[in-house]
Each structure stands twice: as structure tokens, then as C-alpha cells.
Simulated scan of single mutants.
Amino acid sequence: MDDPAKNLPEVTDKKETSIVNPDYQKNSFFKKGIHLMADEKLEDAVKVFEQILRLDATDTDTLLKLGYSKFHLDDYAGALQAYDKVLDIDVANSEAWNLKSLVNYEQKNYGKALDCVEKAIESDPTYGMAWYNKACYLSLLNEVPHALESLKRSIEIDVKNAKRAVRDKDFTNVRIEDGFKRIVEVVVLESIRQGYHTVGAIVWTTFISKIETEEALKKLLEKGMIIRSEKRQGLNKIDTYDLVPELANKVGTEKKSLLGSTRRLPSTIKNLKEVSQAIQTTKMVIEEEDTEKLTKTFDSFIDPAKLGGLMIDQFLEEHREIRLLKVRIDEKGKEYLKENKEKILKLFDNLEITVTQKLARIIF
């Protein structure tokens, strides 16, 4: 479930906390609603979110969660009403457009679903799930070339969409296309990289059929991306597959053992250290309140030629936030920076913690 609930902090003086934080009651209700969603008590969650909206009818986060809850209760009209209210407040809200597309999808209104998801992508071109959904709708409308193009874009943003696609019945219309077969090859290659070296293991981890797996392995061998060896298993010999050394060195590998997985990812360590250094520089510029210099430092996180690709791959939410901050500061200048300075610093503090944790997991 989105936004997993966290334990509420212990409060010793509720009255004082409510005075200090005027949103205390609303925040408490919201966390309660998230807990209920996580426990699949959706009717109760709806009641809580509706309570919040009586306090603040323009709370878009609550409206999105209300719509999501009603959607899973099959109240499609109620879900659409909630999403439309979000769009009345913020017409460029990509999440609302994407969720609205899913309602139309469930009602088999694929043309309307496509219109909605295209608006989500217009608002946020890096929204990988919206690109994925667009590919599904196009496939169902038998727009095969455009479906493959959108699917490839979603995979460029998040490679996990490749694995999702090979199991998705919405792509029945495109499975025989060479473009889709190349996506299957990507999934098989990733499975080998993660340490699954036999046909059986690849089928088990990817849910791709044995025939498709064997066809993908044949193509990867022809392209010189993998090598085949024989391994004795009892009285029998079975084929095993590995990345060619050059590719393994480039993308890194994971080797499975009884103790878990060990990683060899030198390029990832280097990239994460670059992100960490960029964060330090950015925090210093924020303290200086130099808006012109700050928007330039934001570019290092956004530009695909710099850290943009890594940010999209590993820190997509933070990437979106930084892009939005750049737009806001460009529009509103130093006044906006001063008013939101603590919030912006907190964003980069949290990003720094996440980067440090990732580095620690890789190194140790």
C-alpha cells in the first residue's frame, strides 16, 4: 500500500502539542487513515479522510487517499469525484491524472484512460508508472508501435517495469513483436546479473515461460552478452549462464550464497559519493541564500548528463522535489527560498541519510 503508516510519536501533552502545531489534529487523522488503509479497512479509512476534508477541503494528499480508498471499494464515481477535486486545485497534479486513468481503465474506457495518463506525463515526464500505464492502454487499443515506445520509456526510468511487463496480460497484443522480445531479454539479463544462472532459476524468478527464456538466452548468446558453461548436478550436466566479463565489470554483479547476496558495484559507489558531495555543496548554497547559484546546483541533480540519470533510477521522489523547487525558486526568487529554507534543507538532509545508508549496505 502507498505511504506505509508509521507509529505515532508519544505525546505527553496533547493540548500543548495542538497549540504549537495547528495541523496536529489533521495530521493525526491522516496517519490514522493510512493505518486503516494498510489494514485494508477501507470503509473506515474513507470516514477518516472525509473528517479531514471537513477541516480542510483543499488537502490534496487526503483527497488522493480518499479517491484511492474508494477506487478499491469499487466506488468509481466517488474516486473520480475525489481526483477531480484535486485537479480543480492543481490541474497539473500528475498523480491525480494517473489515478484517474486507472478508474477509466477498470471501466474499460481505454481511450479516456489514455487521455488522462497523457496529461500525467505532460505534468511529469519522468513519471515511470504513468508511462507504463500508457503502454498498457495503447496495447489494449492495439496501437502496438506506440505501446512499445511508451513501455521502453517506462523501463528507462525504472528497469523494474521490464519485469512487471513480462507478466502483464495487457501486453498480449505486443508479445510477438521484436521490441517486446528485447524487453524479455533485458529481464533475463538482469536475472543473470542478480545471480540466477540456470533456465529453471530464471523462469522461477521472472515468471517468464521456459520457451521465452530459452529464446532470450539464445539471442543474448548471439549478441555476445552472456556465456554458456556446463555444470555437473549429480549424474547430469546442466547449462549455466553468466554475463561476459566486460559487461559484468560495467554493470556490477550480485552473487548469491547461503549467507545472502554480496555485491560488486564500484561504479555505484562512485556515483553515490558524487551525490553526497553535491548535497554538501547544495546545503552550503542554501545557507548563503544565493538563488541564482542554487538553481545551478539543482541542475547537477536534474541534468541527465550529470547526476540526473542516477537520481531518476534511485531517488525518483527526491528528483521530482528538486525539479519542483527549481521551478518555484525561478518563479518566486529569494522570498520563496527564505520562507521554505528549513523545509529545503530537511529534504537534502534526508537525501544525504539515504545515500549514506545505501553506501553502507554496498561497502559492508
Rank of each mutant, 00 (worst) to 15 (best):
L351W: 07
K343E: 11
A38M: 09
G33N: 06
L337R: 02
H197N: 12
S94Y: 06
I279N: 03
H319K: 06
N109I: 03
M1N: 07
I329T: 05
L325K: 03
L63G: 03
D13R: 02
F49H: 02
K296A: 11
K338V: 12
A130I: 01
I208W: 05
D88E: 14
N27C: 06
I238Q: 06
Q280H: 12
Y76C: 01
S150N: 00
V117Y: 01
K85H: 04
S28Y: 12
R228G: 04
E122I: 10
K119R: 09
L347S: 06
L217P: 02
R175K: 12
L243G: 05
I176A: 14
S150C: 02
F171I: 02
A147Q: 00
G179W: 07
R264H: 15
A120G: 01
S261C: 13
V184H: 12
V174F: 14
E246N: 12
Q51H: 14
A5L: 07
Q25A: 14
V166W: 08
P266C: 11
K14H: 15
K181P: 13
K26S: 14
D44K: 13
Q51G: 11
K273A: 12
S191H: 10
N271Y: 14
V199N: 08
E317Q: 11
L272M: 13
D75M: 02
T356D: 14
L247T: 06
D3I: 06
T205I: 13
L148K: 02
T60D: 06
A130G: 04
G78A: 00
D330T: 13
F207N: 11
R264K: 15
K163M: 11
K6R: 08
N98D: 04
L114A: 02
L102P: 01
